[in-house]
């Protein structure tokens, strides 16, 4: 697990470095193409803050980054703004972000939402119901964070959670949901 530290946030800027230089991060060779092997060194840490998720999968970070810059030519520069602002405000956690006032800055917050959206939806770009082209940049299906808050009750579609007819019973959490 990668810890969110001030050094990570402030020490590297957003210059591209091979992911392996970040230390402690490796994955199966099939997981990343050469093009996908880089991302800003603070990208995972910033993602963890904005998603309030210290447990983010580090292998996924370059894929998320690659999807973001694939669908938005200006994203690299936009991200630099976000990174600089977060460093300037010494943001190390979600409460820090909330307290910083950055969420009220429309442009800055939209960059944060784009980062979070990529992790949550597992893709970047709008779904196009009748198009085979210009479709979203794919990141992950079952790894998308949007599933995690309901996984104890529903399924990630295509996966199963019980035998035939399990759905007839009320979810155990229904009285508190």
């Amino acid at each position: 697990m990668m810890r969110t530290t001030r050094r990570r946030l402030l020490g590297y800027g957003v210059a591209f470095v091979p992911l392996c230089l970040m230390g402690g991060v490796s994955g199966p060779s099939w997981a990343l193409t050469e093009k996908e092997k880089g991302c800003p060194p603070d990208f995972l840490a910033i993602s963890a803050i904005l998603t309030a998720s210290p447990e983010l999968n580090p292998i996924m970070a370059p894929r998320v980054w690659h999807a973001l810059i694939t669908k938005d030519d200006a994203f690299m520069a936009r991200y630099r703004r976000l990174s600089d602002e977060m460093a300037a405000h010494r943001i190390r956690s979600w409460p820090d972000y909330e307290a910083s006032g950055l969420s009220a800055q429309k442009e800055i917050h939209s960059i944060a939402v784009a980062v979070v959206g990529a992790w949550y939806l597992g893709r970047v770009g709008e779904v196009l119901p009748r198009s085979e082209i210009n479709t979203p940049a794919f990141i992950t299906y079952e790894g998308a964070l949007m599933w995690r808050s309901t996984r104890d009750v529903t399924v990630i579609p295509t996966y199963a959670r019980g035998g035939p007819g399990f759905w007839a019973e009320a979810p155990s959490s229904v009285k508190t949901d």
Partner: peptide, 24 residues
């Protein structure tokens, strides 16, 4: 499972952080 459309909507409203999971 309504998570996809719900998440898209919440993101479009700028909801992130712990509130996002709660609202989903």
């Amino acid at each position: 499972v309504g998570n996809v459309q719900i998440t898209e909507r919440l993101l479009s409203q700028g909801v992130i952080g712990p509130e996002l999971d709660e609202k989903i």
